[in-house]
Design a protein around this nucleic acid. Structure first.
Length: 423
RNA sequence: GGAGAGAUGGCUGAGCGGUCGAAAGCGCUCCCCUGCUAAGGGAGUAUACCCUUUAACAGGGUAUCGAGGGUUCGAAUCCCUCUCUCUCCGCCA
């Protein structure tokens, strides 16, 4: 959520940002400002009446204390009318406030000036390419490899749960465990605090990070207990400090969390969902940062570089995209995507998304710090995958397959696998 | 799941219908005194929003004593609902 004060002063910038993000209801800004004006004038009126009522109530208290009951009674008659007026006004006030907040929640974050303006994924900027994407065509796609060996069982996953919930067996299960360990160890060596988070979240948390109201269809719901299965560790971990005021000495805060992630992925089809490309449940190691506003964009660069270093150490060719305004989503002000090269499929697969949300998430969740002057200020939040497992597994299977049909284990994972070969 | 107790400011903890945004203590900040690793004195010390005003400060008002609703001229105090915490029993990795 944006700062209303900011919108009041920069309505044009907000509208332009919405237009660039491909939002349709740009009129909402004007509607918001109108509602905000109405709300404020009513606040003023209501506060005045409340003031009068409070003053009279105190007088009554004093008169009662002095035993002047009759004088008190006169004032009581007057103030009981006041009370009704206040009640009416409060009802309007609540309605306006609700409408204002509702509109405010539906206005997206403004893209940073360094973000390229564009409409679709074709307008994303290739920020960087690393390694040599192998275009020789003898390599098999990972689903052939894994099913030949009986390492991933999609069919039994479908039987037991449904499509997109595979079983991983033997060497692949171990490989995933190795990746998780490698990712978490590396992150903690780089200053991140390891944190294990709940896998279900309540509605307030979903609203805090912006899954509600924008993206609620992406989540699995547990209606009986009014909970959601987490679509990413970002949600519980960022909400960890919700409604808190952080001591500036403790900034910046870095967390690394491994969790499964659940996403409904409604509307996906075809090659996008083949094999491990897109699942309803997958494992991910997530990085979350809470930082001083002045450092947020520098922190985004170090976050990106850190995520990139993981792919480099795994020796997997990748490219980094700077997402254009139209492709980056509701809550972000700037976002990079890291895509690993899948030689068996001859295509890029997204394995990390590093975003700066500015104060957008933190304002929703009242996540603040105390600045140099002792005043409270909204923190800035960032997060990035480091990394999402299944597509990394897919890339490893494909890129590390040898001519003799065996699959090598990336060097950095060998200590965790006690082996140089899979299987 | 059953029975009971509770939720107050950074912390401890009073208040149980009026002068309470809230005693006291601790902690923290500033000042004074004193002077050697201590003690004493004073002042300040929640958050959000609205208005006025400012370069910044500041001032006025409103709301908030777990959350929401109710009673009342007036609620931290009374009533209802919910959430959470603790104790005991049951169940369980």
């Amino acid at each position: 959520m944006l700062d209303v004060n900011y919108i009041r002063g920069h309505a044009d910038l907000v509208k332009e940002g919405m237009k660039n993000k491909g939002e349709k209801n740009i009129d909402q800004v004007d509607e918001l400002l109108k509602t905000d004006r109405q709300w404020r004038s009513l606040v003023q009126k209501t506060d005045e009446l409340r003031n009068e009522s409070n003053t009279k109530a105190k007088e009554i208290g004093q008169l009662m204390g002095q035993g002047k009951k009759e004088e008190a009674q006169e004032i009581i008659e007057h103030t009981s009318k006041l009370k009704e007026q206040i009640k009416d006004l409060e009802e309007d006030l609540n309605n306006l406030k609700e409408k204002r907040d509702e509109l405010l929640l539906r206005i997206p974050n403004v893209p940073h000036e360094s973000v390229p303006v564009g409409q679709t994924e074709d307008d994303n900027e290739v920020f960087k390419t690393w390694g040599d994407p192998a275009t020789d065509d003898w390599r098999k796609p990972h689903w052939d490899l894994a099913e030949e060996q009986g390492w991933i069982d999609f069919d039994r996953g479908s039987k037991v749960t449904g499509a997109g919930f595979p079983f991983y067996l033997g060497p692949i299960a171990k490989l995933q465990r190795a990746l998780i360990n490698y990712f978490i160890n590396k992150a903690t060596e780089n200053g991140y605090t390891e944190i294990q988070a709940p896998y279900f979240i309540n509605e307030d948390s979903a609203r805090g990070t912006g899954q509600i109201p924008d993206k609620e269809d992406m989540m699995y719901v547990i209606p009986r207990d009014e909970l959601f299965a987490i679509p990413t560790a970002e949600v519980p971990v960022t909400n960890f400090h919700r409604d808190e005021i952080i001591d500036p000495d403790n900034l910046p805060i870095y967390y690394v969390a491994y969790t499964p992630c659940w996403r409904r992925e409604a509307g996906s089809y075809g090659k996008d969902v083949r094999g491990l490309n897109r699942l309803h449940q997958f494992d991910k190691v997530e990085l979350v940062k809470m930082v001083h506003p002045d450092t947020a964009f520098d922190e985004l660069e170090t976050l990106r570089e850190y995520a990139e270093s993981l792919l480099e150490e795994l020796d997997l060719p990748y490219r980094t995209l700077l997402m254009c305004t139209g492709d980056m989503g509701f809550t972000q002000s700037k976002k990079y995507d890291l895509e690993v090269w899948s030689p068996g499929q001859q295509r890029w697969l997204e394995v990390s998304s590093c975003s700066n949300f500015g104060s957008f998430q933190a304002r929703r969740m009242q996540l603040r710090y105390r600045n140099e002057n002792g005043n409270t200020e909204i923190l800035h939040t960032l997060n990035g995958s480091g990394l999402a497992l299944p597509r990394v597994v897919a890339a490893i299977l494909e890129a590390y397959q040898q001519e003799d049909g065996s699959i090598a284990v990336p060097e950095v994972l060998q200590p965790f696998m006690d082996s140089q070969k899979l299987g």
